[in-house]
Design a binder for these strands. Structure first.
Lengths: 152, 152
DNA sequence: AATATTTGTTAGGTATACCTAATTTATTAT
DNA sequence: ATAATAAATTAGGTATACCTAACAAATATT
């Protein structure tokens, strides 16, 4: 049982990327982590040691990297936050995908569980809520058009 | 003309706090900045030097602190992001005020101008949009109640 | 099996951003 | 005016998180 002590945004990003790599490649490798995070491979090792010490990944020198159960929980939580935020940005606010992804990537560290579940409910509500003969989201798009809000 | 070079989240927070203090006290003082940011006074000086070098504040040793025009622009932008996000969290997602404030404080650094203006439009839309005999926001509250979404 | 290539690690360095404790300057009270 | 108090700065230290370049290990090629 290690101190949870709050993960830094950076370490959260590592976990998220490792989960992504595990899904596509079964295991994560340092080089790929570096590429995804846009950093140099030399920077990865230190972070892996920290994550290992915190009991979030299984790591041995020169070995493959996998998430522990504890690490997986966190990684999945962060990934979910990312997806929900991106969903909101793309499907509700009508932000372009790549930009939405980048913004979600920054916001995911800033949103707590309570806010998250409220946001999930809100998106659910928007999809359920019939507004005139369309729905709230489509009505918002129409509203933007009518008011000349930039659609880029 | 200094390099803009992207302000760190921390320096953004300093500007935001300085603006807040200028509004209530005409000038900001190191001690108050430290209090608002929950850091020790000794940590403030270095940051002030950096902000001064970037041309964002007027600062002289042992003197008062005010924002330059450039610093004011940034501070106002950040403050606006904070307010819009808080407004969304409190009035749309129905998050409790203090918690919303803390979340807004973290999210304000993560949201870009395009997303910001989309969010502004969206809040506007929600207020304008009549839904049944109430409006979208109230309808969302009802939806949460009907679906047992936690109201804390 | 030996060599080449790729990948990972280490070591030393930079930048940010905080801390504490000592010191200096400014302000206030006598 | 002087002494006491308050506020700001400095100096030295810690932690995070990155960098580059040199080195080591593992994998692939012939």
């Amino acid at each position: 049982m290690e101190k949870d002590a709050e993960l830094s945004e950076n370490l959260e990003d590592y976990l998220e990327v490792i989960l992504e790599l595990e899904k596509t490649r079964k295991v994560a490798r340092g080089k790929e982590i570096a590429q995804k995070l846009n950093i140099q491979p030399g920077s990865v090792t230190g972070a892996l040691k920290t994550l290992d010490k915190k009991g979030l990944i299984n790591w041995e020198k020169y070995g493959y990297i996998t998430l522990t159960k504890k690490g997986l929980n966190i990684a999945e939580n962060i990934t979910q936050r990312h997806e929900v935020l991106k969903n909101f940005l793309v499907n509700v606010l009508q932000i372009e995908k790549d930009s939405a992804d980048a913004t979600a990537c920054r916001m995911e560290h800033a949103i707590d569980d309570t806010t998250m579940s409220k946001l999930v409910s809100f998106i659910e509500y928007l999809n359920a809520c019939p507004h005139a003969e369309t729905n709230c989201t489509r009505a918002f798009v129409a509203y933007c058009e009518a008011n000349g809000v930039d659609q880029t």
